[in-house]
């Protein structure tokens, strides 16, 4: 089984700085980590490898510092890594991001599984995984919560939907996006860390992939961020202390009034 896991580096804190001109993130402003939801993709791949054997390549597109997240994936047990970095990739939207990643994945030869995170905690679109499937012309299973069966030619998996779980059968090769429920991520091992430390990760740019600048980065992106604002949270909180019997009753009176004034009562009460 040959598995590719695309992972993204995201800022550690959720308070990141934005470049008002271009509407892109100023990445250096905060510490970069592996997108937390990608850890589940990595764990899923590692468990499959343990069961069926095979190889895992992790890939990221991002600035030079993003090599750090690839090393972390290696330390967890992935076999090799590819780092896509080029000025021309800057400002990519999800169309351009998935195009660039797919172009690199295609060069890897026969891939059985691509396992992506559900979404990145910064850009938060969840569009790159489905975009990859479309570019690679593979089937797509999103929101995968469990892999029930996996053979050389197909897999049976459950997807977590709004109303419940859907079971699907998918022919390989296939792109999966996974939700948190699928696995509990492991920590890097000491041995893994040593391996990662000594590993040189190939760095590929637009030329290496044979891509034209017009299709890449900001230039190749159909969407444009035109404005960034901080949302104004102007909630004036009514605080009522409810610490003994009578203040609890009073507090509940006030709460009921509040709910009634916002027409929030009596909806399902009759049930």
């Amino acid at each position: 089984m040959y598995i590719v896991v695309p992972i993204k580096q995201v800022p550690e804190t959720s308070n990141v700085q934005m470049d008002k001109e271009t509407g892109t993130m100023i990445r250096s402003a905060s510490e970069a980590i592996v997108n937390p939801l990608d850890l589940y993709a990595l764990e899923t791949a590692l468990q499959i490898k343990e069961r069926t054997g095979g190889r895992i390549t992790v890939i990221t597109m991002g600035p030079l510092g993003a090599a750090k997240v690839l090393k972390e994936a290696i330390a967890m047990g992935c076999d090799d890594a590819i780092h896509l970095s080029d000025r021309a990739f800057g400002g990519s939207d999800t169309w351009a991001t998935s195009y660039t990643l797919a172009s690199a994945i295609r060069k890897l030869g026969k891939v059985d599984l691509v396992i992506a995170g559900e979404r990145a905690t910064d850009g938060d679109t969840g569009q790159v995984g489905p975009g990859l499937a479309s570019w690679l012309d593979m089937g797509l299973v999103t929101y995968t919560s469990h892999i029930e069966e996996l053979t050389d030619t197909y897999l049976i998996a459950e997807r977590l939907l709004e109303e419940g779980y859907q079971k699907v059968k998918a022919t390989l090769p296939v792109v999966l996006t996974v939700v948190k429920e699928i696995a509990i991520p492991r920590l890097p091992t000491l041995k893994g860390k040593k391996r990662a430390m000594h590993m040189t990760i190939p760095l590929l740019g637009a030329k290496d992939l044979g891509l034209e600048n017009a299709d890449l980065g900001l230039l190749g992106s159909p969407t444009r961020v035109v404005k960034i604002e901080s949302p104004k949270i102007s909630r004036a909180c009514t605080v009522v202390k409810a610490t003994d019997d009578s203040s609890i009753q009073e507090g509940i009176d006030k709460l009921m009034l509040f709910l009634a004034s916002k027409e929030l009562l009596g909806k399902g009460v009759a049930k």
Partner: peptide
């Protein structure tokens, strides 16, 4: 985006 910390307008 970014955990609800910003609102982005996109075209």
């Amino acid at each position: 985006a970014i955990g609800g910390n910003i609102m982005a307008t996109i075209k």
